[in-house]
Design a protein around this nucleic acid. Structure first.
Lengths: 194, 194, 194, 194
DNA sequence: GATGAATGAGTATTCATTCAT
DNA sequence: AATGAATGAATACTCATTCAT
């Protein structure tokens, strides 16, 4: 029976190697060495190189979803929920730099290879944002004239670009969290009647 | 003397091929065939494969800068300038789909290879946004508590993510233009005193 | 574990192919086919094409040294030692035509690539000649006014040129052995006092 | 009409480049640049790359023959003739280092390509040695039991090996001239009857 | 004659994947 | 299950030669 332990070791190693070298420049043997298994062993757990990337991504996304869902469920206030999402996303990137690299660089890199690259799991993650915005609109807290899907997209784009700059230049993430929160609260919150 | 015409033909062909296949999966011979020159001819004009990508990117970015600068100079109102930038960027992507692909996929794809990839030229482009925001703040039209660099980043991220979705799903770009304008005007514009 | 057998098969094949085509005109795939392995397999055993040539040369030189050293150790008379060296060298070339080609054509061919091409191992081989000459001088058999290094050089040049002609024209090697022996005995042996 | 001047410039340039890089590593464009002509111009004077090498070699050999023939004709004594040949050969190498490289490295390098590489002209040069030896035998000065062709070969091999060492290590050529003269006089001269 | 831009055949080397052990 | 030696397809780049100007 395939060992879940080995499967995990390979995922971890692959995340590291993909983050460091990029999908195309990563070698199977790099991953094997990092995971301390033989090259051939990898093919007992994954169909091919792309499959490894997809698995890495799916698994990490799953974790993100679970974590942030819990946080959101514990909160009533939609404005605070928005803050929570922004905060958690960027903190998660900071906590797992390799994941950050994999998400916003490698995923795009392989996008030509993956038909449905922003697949179910990742869409679910993005939809957590959509749900917050919609809830805000329904509660009359967020402006009703903003398209939910567009806002979701814009927010994710902003988050992603922010984490890219952090990766590249080591900019201040805490400041970014505060600023993005401010920016999107401004953008979304309904002006209270005088 | 090397023909500028051929240089141009190769750039065009490369943009097309990179957009279609991605940098790593593009073959020099694909580009040569598309440009209707011999493989070797490419090396009379470019040092290597990466150099082609860089040249494509630099040239197209230059065009973007020139075009949008002209449009912005002809406008006084900062809010309208913001609208102009958003509108022009997405329309330029629509007009040159290959460029769109190259910008937001290929550039990241090769980012591991290019140290300063988002270098000079592209930074200049992004700084056009920063200039608008700053001008707005100075004129008292935009909120002063928003960090210019952060806002620039967020806006570009939103634009980029939007064009990505358009590339992937063919979403409605005109609606996106309207919505992003609305969203960022909300986010940035100072609430007038009652 | 890499098979020593395969290493050997590749060396043999390379010797043959280099001898037949020359270093620059030999193709890795020629060697692979001759050795009945895949092209890639060669790179499990050798770093690159030049490394193959060097390995071939080093190994064959080693064999020459071992064989002729044994023969020389079994002989006391220096004049006979000289004869033994000349004889063995040319007979070895005759026995292994490919080696002959590699030694005096390929080695020079690649000499621009190899800094210390006539390095260690081959120098050792040449020094066997020097040792004989020196011993002859010390025993008062060979003329003392001849420079050992020069004589060594001249003798090797003569042997090498002889084997070249044999390769090119198939001249009579046995006659050459007799004649070279005669020539160098004349050249080196001290005239006995009347 | 083809300019003899340009032909000469190319020969000179080729000698230099072949000597420096070796035949296979020399580029036509290197030679063209060195000769200050266009690449294509070379093909107005030579059929192909190998033809250049052959022409270089033939022309330089011709010069050697003419020069040494004059010197030999001015001398009666065969022993002195032998000395003259040895001296002139090594001095010529010293005077034209590039020629030396071309003769003993490049020629062998291309030997697989040239069927009759040691062609007529070069054979003529070698036969000057044979003629000296034969004359010596006929005059009763040189030993009659030495085969003329073999002796010629041995002498050339010794000269060639000597110039190789000079090229590689910068050894003392004057000493080499003296020693080789001594060695081959010993080898060839008939012991005077008591 | 002279040029040099254009050509395109040619090849060492890499690396994902397989499979005998 | 695990190994890692073996495979061989795949490709960026070079350079001798040509030929339109």
């Amino acid at each position: 029976m395939k060992s879940p332990d080995k499967h995990h070791k390979i995922i971890l190693a692959a995340t590291k190697v993909f983050a460091k070298k990029g999908f195309f420049n990563a070698r199977i043997s790099d991953i094997a060495k990092e995971a301390k298994v033989a090259d051939g062993t990898i093919y007992l757990y994954f169909a091919n190189k792309l499959d490894i990337l997809l698995s890495v991504f799916a698994q990490e996304t799953e974790k993100l979803i679970n974590k942030v869902t819990n946080l959101l469920n514990a909160e009533e206030d939609v404005q605070k929920k928005l803050t929570i999402f922004i905060t958690h996303h960027l903190q998660a990137m900071r906590k797992n730099r390799s994941l950050a690299e994999v998400i916003h660089i490698e995923l795009r890199q392989a996008s030509k290879l993956i038909k449905e690259y922003r697949s179910n799991t990742f869409s679910e993650y993005l939809d957590l944002m959509a749900a917050i915005i919609q809830e805000g609109q329904e509660k009359g807290v967020f402006r009703p004239d903003i398209d939910v899907q567009l806002a979701k997209l814009a927010l994710f784009g902003a988050l992603d670009e922010t984490s890219r700059l952090w990766l590249a230049r080591g900019t201040d993430l805490d400041k970014a969290i505060a600023q993005l929160t401010l920016l999107f609260q401004n953008a979304l919150v309904q002006q209270s009647a005088p």
